[in-house]
Amino acid sequence: MTETIHPCLSCGACCQNYRVEFSIYELQSMGGSVPDALTHDVPGNGNRARMNGTERYPVRCAALRELPEVGEGCIGCGIYEQRSSPCRDFPFASYGCHDTRTKLNLPALAEQEVTPWLQAA
């Protein structure tokens, strides 16, 4: 595979479309990896946390940021290695990915953008 940047690093669409809710046991204060400061408790449910910015419309996860250390124009998760299970489980190039890109007026991913990354996984 050539040294190209993953399509997700020029997108951020999923971080601007979905409510990200997960068990409080994924929080750093509970032994997990997700920074508490980027989350809040889910009202009426003492065992769930939610990423800040995903509880309202328009959605924009608090962890989504520019990533100049990766490359010019790159955007993505500022806590990628610490992200929650819903983010870890969101499939690249899935129906949800393509549907979200459409909602945000982004072009569909072309097969040549997707195939090398799926083969490398």
Rank of each mutant, 00 (worst) to 15 (best):
Q16K: 14
Y95I: 08
G76P: 03
M30Q: 15
S33F: 11
S94D: 13
M1Q: 15
T115D: 05
Q16G: 09
G32I: 05
V34D: 14
C15V: 07
N105H: 07
Q112N: 07
G96T: 06
V34K: 13
L9W: 07
H6G: 02
P43M: 01
S33V: 11
G73N: 10
T54E: 11
S10P: 00
E81S: 13
Y80T: 09
A121V: 13
P116C: 03
A121H: 04
F90D: 11
P58I: 12
C8D: 04
L106C: 04
P58M: 09
A62H: 09
P86V: 03
F22L: 05
L109H: 07
C15Q: 09
A108C: 04
L118P: 02
V42W: 03
L104V: 02
L118V: 08
F92M: 08
I75L: 14
D41I: 11
A37Q: 10
G31Y: 12
N17F: 10
R88S: 14
L106T: 01
Y25A: 07
E69H: 14
R88P: 01
C77W: 03
L118K: 07
C74H: 04
T115M: 10
A121Q: 07
G73R: 00
R83P: 10
H40C: 08
E72P: 11
E72D: 13
G76L: 06
N105T: 10
Q119P: 03
I79Y: 03
P7L: 08
A120G: 11
